[in-house]
Design a protein around this nucleic acid. Structure first.
Lengths: 207, 207
DNA sequence: GCGCCCGCGTGACACGTGTCACGCGGATGA
DNA sequence: TCATCCGCGTGACACGTGTCACGCGGGCGC
């Protein structure tokens, strides 16, 4: 193991307080790891990293306000000495790609055994990448996100049941254009209607 | 604290392996608690409780196969000496009601601080109920689930974007009846269309 | 300059959806 | 027994949706 004189300093960003605390307890059991702070959203994580300059930041993706992808970008830009290890609920290929693009060093899903986490932290800290092999394969198979920015935007708005007209006034477009955009998105993801398109795009992490 | 000679025996059921392990680590830090097993779905939890007869079972709701509500019912029926403490991601009023009806003794959301968990386990074990106060209030405000069994069924099927005709052939009903059922559900939850109705019903824990 | 593509808008058409009124048969209860 | 209710089905109507063809204007490369 690594010397106890210089433990790996870790911060944890996750919106679920219980998981934050439980992960902190788990990692603090390791002699060579030290949890130096926790945060509940992206902004807090960014501020915490600025203050404590940790070696590794565990980062959830789904958080209120600034999400984990944006926070990863900001952290990598501001504090490149801190490696980011994404720890997320959803094994979505689009998430993996977005996380790597944002500068994350590793990607672990919460379905993985808890024992893997400490090792993942050590490997990330030593400069290695940590990826879920099955997810990496799926990500290669899927190809990139085929949706344009507009299409993602209208699909996100359609996701909570808005009508085409309501989406149009939200985005300052014509209702017909919104329907054209949705139609294009439906075709690209291979769905039969907007509701299915929303589900599929969410499943892949495309919106 | 309680005597260390007779710790409270706890099992944990959650579909996320990492959370299972982390919660186990958290609770094992307490001298008066002992995690004696973990399970990843309802059936495994039921079997584990049968074998180990723990004092308290931590139970997630959203699990593959048999969910936490059904598992709680089965555990209470088969092994009434074990108290069930629901630990769930979603603060949905309908979940709370269903959990209490199934015989759970407590209901904690994962947003709550990790420090509360050990106390919740102790209180449940001593025969007290543990409820999130805000959620209990919301649950009273909402009233009961207004949806009929049929309406819940068609709404669940509509949730992944099926057309009325597709739902009809799934449920062996006429397409018109399915539309009538959906219309009734839309009216009851106060939505404008089926997609909104699906979201709202999911938010309240009604489907 | 000249095609060329791309995002946006319009109009039209077929189809799905949401809603209502009405009818049927079976349980339920006074 | 009879009125009543409830779940289911039918038909009709207005409206939203999905799809297509077509047009417009603004970049972009040759």
């Amino acid at each position: 193991m690594v010397s106890e004189l210089k433990p790996i300093r870790v911060v944890i960003a996750d919106d679920q307080a219980m998981l934050r605390g439980a992960l902190a307890a788990l990692l603090d059991l390791e002699d060579d790891l030290a949890v130096v702070g926790v945060a509940g959203d992206g902004e807090a994580a960014l501020e915490l990293v600025r203050q404590t300059a940790p070696d590794v930041c565990l980062m959830d993706i789904q958080m209120p306000g600034m999400d984990g992808i944006a926070a990863t970008q900001a952290i990598r830009a501001a504090n490149a000495a801190t490696s980011v290890l994404i720890v997320t609920t959803f094994a979505r290929p689009g998430y993996l790609r977005a996380a790597l693009d944002a500068g994350a060093s590793g990607f672990v899903v919460k379905d993985a055994p808890a024992e893997h986490l400490a090792d993942a932290v050590r490997r990330v800290h030593s400069g290695l990448r940590v990826l879920d092999p099955a997810l990496a394969e799926a990500s290669l198979f899927e190809g990139a996100n085929p949706l344009s920015e507009r299409e993602r935007q209208v699909l996100r708005l359609a996701a909570d049941g808005r009508s085409a007209a309501a989406i149009a006034s939200e985005v300052f477009l014509s209702a017909g254009t919104v329907r054209n955009n949705l139609s294009a998105a439906i075709g690209k993801v291979g769905a039969a209607n907007r509701a299915q398109a929303v589900r599929m795009a969410q499943d892949k992490g495309w919106i």
